[in-house]
């Protein structure tokens, strides 16, 4: 079935240990200029609870990395930011996710507009079965009535920002699926930024892509943060250390620790964080 599997925690004893020793997690002070403030977020797959009392601040124009062992809730967490979990009948979120002063989980929020503001890149490159041009223009045509020339201009801008323009400018009519994995992923990034979002969510964007393309995409992320706020889920700790400004460490649905990347990786406050960073488990 296609429904996301509920998080299965490993190790009975560890589980209990985790629940009783986790203190309040936020080590960075709350900033009123946060792009996103998450307050008391709990998430359920049917009866199973997957996220527990998540509190988080996402800084604007910074890269926030979300790390943690498999199945700890990383993807689940960011999928709340664009309410994509609502596709699935039995998935539920409670709490507040405040973006620009508005709780996006509240009823009455216009979801299509939310999704224009929040772009998402998936682990599998998902080039639509249409030309490269149509791929990038897809979101534009969805949300706006634009003249053809304007669309062409926005497409070019997006492809340039995604560092793909030079490679595809002569073959905009080629199907998107004809590109290599790394190029497709950058196409997806171009597609997402074409509608000028404010937040970019990336769910393990380089996991299915070769090392050379990975480097290119990481360089891209570094450039993009000037214009966008980026949250990136990754199981690759080195990647998180390389490209992010802030890091949140998740464990079994809890946010164990959150703070500037350098601090998390060199001098973490929590023992569990240190254990994960040093590879004691994972």
């Amino acid at each position: 079935m296609n429904e996301k599997q509920p998080i299965v925690s490993e190790g009975g004893e560890n589980q209990i240990e985790a629940r009783t020793t986790l203190p309040s997690k936020i080590t960075a002070t709350a900033d009123s200029r946060s792009k996103i403030s998450v307050r008391n977020l709990n998430f359920f797959y049917g009866d199973k609870q997957a996220l527990f009392d998540n509190d988080l601040e996402i800084r604007p124009n910074k890269v926030t990395a979300i790390i943690g062992p498999s199945g700890c809730g990383k993807s689940t967490h960011i999928r709340v930011y664009n309410r994509i979990f609502e596709l699935y009948r039995d998935q539920k979120a409670t709490g507040e996710v405040v973006m620009d002063g508005e709780n996006i989980l509240a009823p009455g929020v216009e979801v299509t507009e939310l999704r224009r503001k929040v772009g998402m890149i998936f682990q599998q490159p998902t080039a639509f079965p249409m030309s490269i041009f149509d791929n990038v223009a897809y979101g534009l045509r969805l949300h706006y009535k634009m003249k053809k020339s304007r669309i062409a201009e926005r497409v070019r801008k997006a492809l340039e920002s995604a560092a793909l323009w030079d490679q595809v400018k002569d073959q905009l009519n080629k199907p998107g699926t004809a590109l290599s994995g790394g190029q497709q992923q950058r196409l997806c990034i171009a597609r997402a930024i074409a509608v000028e979002p404010e937040l970019l969510l990336m769910d393990e964007p380089t996991a299915a892509v070769d090392p050379v393309a990975t480097t290119r995409i990481e360089e891209l992320v570094d450039t993009l943060k000037q214009d966008y706020t980026i949250v990136i889920v990754t199981h690759n700790m080195q990647q998180a250390a390389r490209i992010s400004d802030y890091t949140a460490f998740f464990y079994e649905g809890y946010i164990v620790e959150y703070g500037p990347t350098r601090k998390i990786f060199t001098n973490p406050s929590e023992k569990r964080t240190e254990e994960y960073i040093t590879g004691r488990f994972g």
Binding site: R83, E86, L87, V109, E110, V111, T112, E113, L114
Partner: peptide
């Protein structure tokens, strides 16, 4: 998909 979760998608 929650029906009515947004005006335009409704």
């Amino acid at each position: 998909m929650k029906i009515g979760s947004g005006k335009h998608t409704g």
